[in-house]
């Protein structure tokens, strides 16, 4: 979690390797089943944060992008027999296009109006899928899984590996944006859009870029979903739940740094999985309580708590930070 590049890249390399090795040493299937969901939320929350956190545009359409990704993969599979990585790539492209399209239509809106427009986008796409017989319409359809590739025992194990790769990709992208001029520009327009434009920040272009990247990652996270569940239907796939979850994870984790949504997603998704096995009704309550707790006690999320703790550790910390600041300059 430090600003240490080497340990970051070590982690980025280690996660997919673990994702490849662990499923082959014969742990219980259930762990991979749960870990897949947790990682899927890491990707969704990280992607959400690129637009919602860095740029300050609160998107309630996560479900639209996720569902579109899932259905794009389904169509690619059913119509063209595309392999999984092609399905994911196709989903990412469609997600990016939807991001740009939705962005062009809605980015003139600010605050709550933008959020409402994104909810509408989810409903529009869901309605379209509901009426499309080829993908099963409202009643959904069974997905026929081809043979498991890469020598994995089951699809759950394979998809867990795939999700570790997507997770690492999403985190690398978010981290890169955060440190680059794109991130600085998004940060600026979140604070004061007209001032950003006066400073030479191409605000519209950056917002569209954020929409495209965020949308591509969300759709990619949805792409393995049909193979994962082996049954797909529109209501649960385009669920508002995904939007609310991605948003809460970013809020609880902290939106200013890339590792905020990662921690938030791990915390909420694992708590939820545990609670869900205890009682299916309880898990929503858990998310709700966490959300309320964080908004009141730690509005900057886990990131804020960690930064606060670092400050408390000692005055020496401050000098380090100052030195780091001048390095950056």
């Amino acid at each position: 979690m430090r600003n240490n590049s080497t340990s970051f890249w070590a982690f980025a390399l280690a996660l997919p390797i673990l994702g490849f090795v662990l499923p082959k040493v014969g742990l219980n299937e259930y762990y991979f089943y749960v870990a897949y969901v947790v990682l899927q939320y890491v990707v969704l929350a990280t992607a959400w944060n690129i637009l919602g956190g860095y740029a300050g545009y609160v998107n309630f359409g996560t479900g639209a992008f996720f569902g579109l990704g899932a259905y794009t993969a389904l169509v690619a599979m059913k119509a063209f027999g595309a392999p999984l990585f092609v399905q994911i790539a196709a989903a990412a492209i469609v997600g990016a296009l939807l991001g740009i399209g939705a962005g062009l239509l809605t980015l003139r809106l600010k605050g709550i109006f933008f959020s409402i427009a994104t909810i509408a986008a989810a409903i529009v796409i869901e309605t379209f899928i509901l009426n499309w017989r080829f993908v099963g319409g409202a009643s959904g359809m069974q997905v026929i899984r081809p043979e498991v590739p890469l020598g994995f025992e089951t699809y759950t194990r394979l998809l867990f590996f795939v999700m570790t790769i997507l997770t690492v990709l999403a985190i690398i992208v978010a981290r890169y944006i955060e440190k680059s001029w794109v991130g600085r520009g998004l940060h600026a327009l979140r604070d004061a859009e007209s001032a950003a434009e006066c400073s030479g920040v191409p605000t519209l272009r950056l917002k569209l870029l954020a929409c495209a990247i965020s949308g591509a990652l969300m759709a990619a996270a949805g792409a393995p979903f049909p193979l994962y569940t082996s049954f797909i239907e529109p209501h649960s796939t385009f669920s508002l739940n995904y939007s609310v979850m991605a948003l809460s994870m970013a809020v609880v984790g902290g939106m200013s740094r890339w590792w905020g949504p990662v921690l938030g997603a791990i915390l909420i998704a694992s708590t939820q999985q545990l609670a869900a096995s205890a009682s299916p009704e309880l898990h929503l309550l858990v998310v709700g309580l966490l959300m309320v707790l964080f908004v009141i006690v730690a509005p900057d999320g886990l990131v804020g708590l960690v930064q606060w703790a670092r400050k408390m550790v000692g005055p020496g910390r401050k000098e380090v930070e100052l030195a780091r600041g001048s390095e950056r300059a």
């Binding site: 520009g185 600026a188 604070d191 001032a195 950003a196 300059a329």
Partner: peptide, 19 residues
């Protein structure tokens, strides 16, 4: 003036160099 009120002085200056 149109500064970035929630950003630090130095962040404001760095954004001036966006060009």
């Amino acid at each position: 003036r149109r500064l970035f009120p929630q950003l630090s002085v130095e962040e404001n200056l760095l954004l001036g160099a966006y060009r």
